[in-house]
Computed example of a mutant assay.
Amino acid sequence: MTFRITPHRQLELQRLHAQSHASRSATLQNQISSGVRVHRPSDDPIAQQTILSQQRVLNRLEVQHNAIQHARASLTQSNEQLLDANQLVVQAKTLALQGRQSQTSFELQSLADEVNLLQMK
């Protein structure tokens, strides 16, 4: 048994296809104009899942970045303190070497005063 499609059914199918194309065209135009492909989860559930996964990764990376910045600031401060301490040790060594070569008590007292000033830093 063969079925024939009536002209009325052909028009109805063409109208449905035209509506479908118009709807798809409107959706694509909305995506192009807004720059957003997925406005709500029902637009594309798989893409929504990917978006949420990437957002979680991004949030985790931001937390790690903030932790690294905090650690870097702490390390920079510690490095500066160590450089200052090294400078004090070098100055103390220089004063000690000068003290070995001192001949008078006045020179020794002057070097001792400088060492006391280093201790206050």
Rank of each mutant, 00 (worst) to 15 (best):
M1P: 01
T2E: 13
T2C: 04
T2P: 02
R4S: 06
R4Q: 07
I5E: 13
I5W: 12
T6Q: 10
T6N: 14
P7D: 15
P7V: 07
P7S: 10
H8R: 14
Q10H: 09
L11C: 07
L11V: 13
L11Q: 15
E12I: 03
E12L: 07
E12P: 03
Q14F: 12
Q14N: 13
R15Q: 11
L16F: 05
H17T: 00
H17L: 11
H17R: 02
Q19V: 03
Q19P: 01
A22E: 13
R24S: 15
S25I: 14
S25H: 15
T27Q: 15
T27A: 08
Q29T: 05
N30R: 13
N30V: 02
N30E: 11
Q31W: 04
Q31P: 02
I32W: 05
S33Q: 12
S33R: 10
S34P: 04
S34K: 06
G35P: 04
R37Y: 10
V38Y: 04
R40Y: 05
P41W: 06
D44T: 04
I46K: 08
I46W: 12
A47Q: 05
A47G: 06
Q49R: 12
Q49V: 06
T50N: 09
L52W: 05
L52I: 00
L52R: 03
S53G: 14
S53I: 05
Q55Y: 13
R56H: 13
V57R: 10
V57Y: 09
L58F: 03
L58I: 01
L58V: 01
N59V: 03
E62K: 15
V63C: 07
V63Y: 08
Q64K: 09
Q64I: 02
H65I: 04
H65W: 06
H65K: 14
N66V: 04
N66C: 06
A67E: 10
A67Y: 06
Q69W: 03
Q69F: 00
H70A: 15
H70S: 15
A71R: 10
A71H: 12
R72C: 07
R72W: 08
R72F: 10
R72P: 03
R72M: 11
A73N: 09
L75T: 07
L75Q: 09
T76G: 15
Q77V: 15
S78G: 03
S78W: 03
Q81Y: 08
Q81R: 10
Q81C: 09
L82T: 00
L83M: 05
D84Q: 10
A85S: 09
N86R: 06
N86P: 02
Q87C: 14
Q87A: 15
Q87F: 09
Q87P: 01
L88V: 06
V89M: 11
V89L: 12
V89S: 02
V90W: 08
Q91W: 09
A92R: 08
K93Q: 10
K93D: 01
A96Y: 00
L97C: 11
G99W: 07
Q101L: 04
Q101V: 08
S102F: 05
T104D: 07
T104H: 04
S105A: 09
F106C: 02
L108Q: 07
L108N: 03
Q109C: 03
Q109H: 06
S110R: 13
L111K: 00
L111W: 01
L111E: 00
A112W: 06
D113F: 14
V115S: 11
V115R: 13
N116V: 05
L117N: 07
Q119H: 11
M120H: 10
K121T: 11
K121V: 09
K121I: 06
K121N: 06
